[in-house]
Computed example of a mutant assay.
Amino acid sequence: MTKLTKKNLFKVYDAKPETPMDKTTRVVRQMVDEETEQRDAKNSRLRNARLEREANRPPVPKDSAASKSRRTKATSTR
Rank of each mutant, 00 (worst) to 15 (best):
M1W: 00
K3T: 13
K3D: 12
K3A: 11
K6R: 06
K7M: 03
K7V: 01
N8I: 04
N8D: 06
L9T: 04
L9M: 02
F10S: 04
F10P: 01
K11C: 02
V12P: 00
V12G: 06
Y13N: 00
Y13S: 03
Y13T: 00
D14H: 01
D14P: 00
A15H: 01
K16W: 01
K16R: 11
P17M: 06
P17A: 09
T19N: 05
T19S: 12
T19G: 03
P20A: 01
M21P: 05
D22M: 07
K23A: 13
T24Q: 11
T24F: 11
T24Y: 11
T24I: 10
R26A: 13
R26Q: 10
V27P: 03
V27N: 07
V28K: 12
V28W: 09
R29M: 10
Q30H: 12
Q30N: 13
Q30D: 14
M31H: 08
V32Q: 06
V32C: 02
E34D: 11
E34V: 04
E34M: 07
E35M: 03
E35K: 05
T36D: 03
T36N: 07
E37V: 03
E37W: 05
E37Q: 06
E37G: 08
Q38M: 04
Q38E: 02
R39D: 09
A41C: 01
A41M: 02
A41D: 06
A41E: 07
N43A: 13
N43K: 13
R45C: 13
L46T: 15
L46Y: 15
L46D: 15
L46Q: 15
N48Y: 12
N48L: 14
N48F: 12
N48H: 14
N48W: 11
A49E: 15
A49V: 06
A49C: 09
A49D: 13
A49Q: 15
L51W: 09
L51H: 13
E52T: 09
E52C: 02
R53W: 13
R53A: 15
R53C: 07
E54D: 15
A55R: 09
A55P: 02
N56Y: 14
R57G: 01
R57K: 10
R57W: 03
R57E: 10
R57Y: 08
P58S: 14
P58T: 12
P59D: 14
P59L: 14
V60D: 05
V60E: 09
P61M: 10
K62N: 03
S64R: 08
A65D: 10
A65V: 06
K68F: 01
S69Y: 06
S69P: 00
R71C: 05
R71D: 07
R71Q: 08
T72G: 05
T72W: 09
K73M: 08
K73S: 09
K73L: 09
A74M: 07
A74N: 06
A74G: 03
A74L: 08
T75R: 14
T75E: 15
T75L: 13
S76G: 07
S76E: 09
T77Y: 10
T77N: 12
R78M: 00
R78D: 02
R78I: 01
R78H: 00
